[in-house]
């Protein structure tokens, strides 16, 4: 007998894991900051922090408020029409009733591949985009599963969450960068110190360099890991909404088994990949740098629900 997974458990488990991953990023952030301030002049560090925080905050705020428009424009999505895409409207209406969320604005993008994404900063400003391939190849239950998955991203505030993570990752990268560059200038002033203090400082600087190189990489990996966790969470919520695991499961099986022409892959900007319901590049294996969890694992978990 296979163990039965309740979707509520799955959702709360994902929440805890995502939270832990955020904590890991924060700890890394603090270690990096502490090392840099030890290695350099503390007052100097303070200025760097303020500048980089203002810079990255304004940058992310702008992209956060326009994320939906940017995403839709980059795939050339068109608004869906109620008469032409009736099945999509029915599925989205059903899912918005089941989740108690407002109906998202619906868009369709031209692509043979079965895929979908949702964007927008909160459920009131949500947009959902489905490929023409998905509308052609999926039946009603499967489409409901896919729409339910995207609805869950909206319901879980995944857009907001991923933006927060992006801010943290961006901050770490910027600070690490500034630290590495500042070494060029500070190095000259400190040369010649032979006492114990000087040695300690050199060790700290080396450690700082090590962390500054490592931190952005680790932060990126962690954010990708969170993104993968979020996909599992959205699958679980989609089942909660449809109460019908085979719908989403069969959609994922169709996605796995379809072959995507190379010219279709080029339609997606690399930066858009994490937004989609399944990896548009269809990488054969999953590693630390994957934006999505392996599709077979998602199918297996849905099988046990």
């Amino acid at each position: 007998m296979v163990e039965h997974i309740s979707f509520q458990d799955e959702i709360s488990k994902n929440k805890i894991k995502s939270f832990l991953l955020i904590v890991v990023i924060f700890v890394f952030f603090i270690i990096l900051g502490a090392l840099i301030s030890f290695a350099l002049d503390p007052s100097y560090f303070f200025v760097i922090m303020i500048i980089s925080i203002i810079f990255s905050l304004s940058y992310t705020l702008i992209s956060y408020y326009n994320s939906d428009k940017i995403a839709l424009a980059s795939v050339r999505a068109k608004p869906a029409s109620r008469t032409e895409h009736r099945m999509l409207f029915n599925a989205a209406e059903s899912m918005s009733i089941a989740s108690g969320l407002p109906m998202p604005k619906l868009y369709v993008m031209e692509s043979e591949q079965i895929n979908a994404f949702a964007s927008g900063r909160d459920p009131q400003h949500a947009v959902m985009c489905v490929t023409t391939g998905a509308l052609k190849k999926l039946n009603k239950q499967e489409l409901e599963g896919v729409v339910g998955h995207e609805m869950s991203h909206i319901a879980n505030y995944d857009m907001r969450f991923m933006t927060t993570v992006a801010v943290l990752v961006g901050l770490i990268s910027i600070i690490a960068e500034i630290f590495l560059r500042s070494l060029w200038f500070s190095g000259r002033n400190n040369s010649g110190g032979k006492d114990e203090n000087g040695k300690l400082q050199i060790i700290l600087i080396l450690l700082g360099v090590f962390f500054a190189i490592l931190a952005p990489i680790v932060a990126n990996l962690v954010s990708l890991a969170i993104s993968r966790k979020r996909e599992f969470g959205a699958d679980a919520t989609a089942v909660k909404l449809t109460r019908y695991p085979p719908g989403l499961k069969n959609a994922l099986i169709k996605i796995r088994d379809e072959s995507v022409p190379e010219k279709d892959k080029k339609k997606y900007a690399k930066a858009m990949a994490p937004l989609f319901m399944s990896d548009p590049y269809k990488k054969k294996f999953t590693d630390m740098f994957s934006t999505h969890p392996p599709i077979n694992e998602r199918i297996k978990i849905l099988d046990r629900m």
Partner: peptide, 21 residues
């Protein structure tokens, strides 16, 4: 027929959301 089938689905989902609430 199609429209009524879609409405029946939505009634079922509305009931489900009611019970969830």
């Amino acid at each position: 027929q199609q429209e009524l089938a879609a409405i029946e689905d939505k009634v079922a989902y509305a009931r489900q959301f009611y019970n969830d609430s």
